[in-house]
């Protein structure tokens, strides 16, 4: 149910991604890069050094032709709540450069505070965190398209998906000016959700019964990534295919797929 913090309603923002609908087209990845001033270089083929807050993974069922099957899985930061906001990455950051916001459930990242120890990267099992190995340089003229609502990062710091926090701030300000206590579902949507041509991503307050995600996350085919670790993520996935649901977590050979836990 809704929680109160300082007398104000708190939200728990999250996503439900329908993997049956996701086509792996990559719009969400690019929408995120464009919205959040993610830098790029001439060669981005080293995926272990390529910053993609949203990354679409390609999963295969491991069967031989023609029984092969593929599923695409978009992976933003999972905004892990852990237990009581003790998310894997937040708890380890020595300089409090990343934080679990109890107001929104969003795991923040403060680039000017981060000193680049990369402990948080080691802590995140989803590889959702990216280090700026290089100075972000835009070819001359291209810096014109940078979004002023998101500060470009400097070399040597970690960055990651923020659930487009600047959009939350804008929506919150607007709600305040309009004298609204709550932010409407439409008023705050992430760039990837908005862009997805397949409508595979739904975003909203998981705790708010008026938001679509509240019911969607309860579908029987819902699962979260690596639930056994206790990361308590806020990104839910739906798939009608059992092999996909099973790929969401590690199972011992003897173990069956457990039903989604909410």
């Amino acid at each position: 149910m809704k929680q109160e913090h300082g007398g104000v309603v708190t939200q728990k923002y999250g996503m439900v991604v329908d993997l049956d609908l996701c086509t792996g087209c990559g719009s969400c990845m690019v929408a995120c890069m464009a919205e959040n001033n993610v830098p790029f270089r001439e060669d981005e083929t080293d995926k272990l050094k390529s910053i993609t807050w949203m990354r679409v993974y390609k999963l295969t069922n491991g069967k031989h032709y023609p029984e092969t099957d593929i599923c695409y899985l978009p992976r933003p930061c999972q905004h892990c709540e852990g237990s009581h906001g003790h998310s894997p990455c937040v708890s380890v950051c020595p300089a409090t450069a990343t934080d679990y916001d109890n107001q929104t459930g969003i795991v923040s990242q403060i680039y000017t505070r981060c000193f680049g120890c990369r402990y948080c990267m080691g802590a995140c099992p989803y590889h959702a965190r990216y280090f700026n190995w290089y100075d972000p340089i835009w070819p001359e003229g291209m810096e014109r398209y940078l979004n002023p609502n998101v500060s470009p990062r400097m070399r040597g710091v970690v960055e990651k998906c923020s659930f487009c926090f600047h959009r939350y701030q804008a929506a919150k300000d607007k709600a305040h000016l309009d004298g609204q206590k709550e932010i409407d579902e439409d008023a705050y949507q992430t760039a990837c959700t908005q862009a997805c041509p397949a409508g595979a991503i739904t975003f909203g307050d998981l705790d708010n019964p008026n938001h679509a995600v509240h019911e969607l996350k309860k579908q029987p085919d819902t699962f979260r990534l690596l639930e056994k670790l206790g990361t308590n993520t806020k990104v839910y996935y739906v798939s009608s295919r059992e092999w996909v649901r099973r790929a969401g977590d590690n199972y011992l050979k003897t173990e069956g797929l457990k039903k989604a836990v909410l």
Binding site: V92, A95, C114, G116, C117, Y119, R155, G156
Partner: peptide, 26 residues
């Protein structure tokens, strides 16, 4: 040398997060 922003290394003391093992280490 290891940290990405050596000139901010002291943030570990100034903005210390007591929950972090690395803070304790530092």
């Amino acid at each position: 040398i290891d940290i990405g922003q050596p000139l901010r290394g002291w943030f570990i003391f100034w903005h210390a997060n007591v929950h972090s093992m690395l803070t304790e280490v530092a």
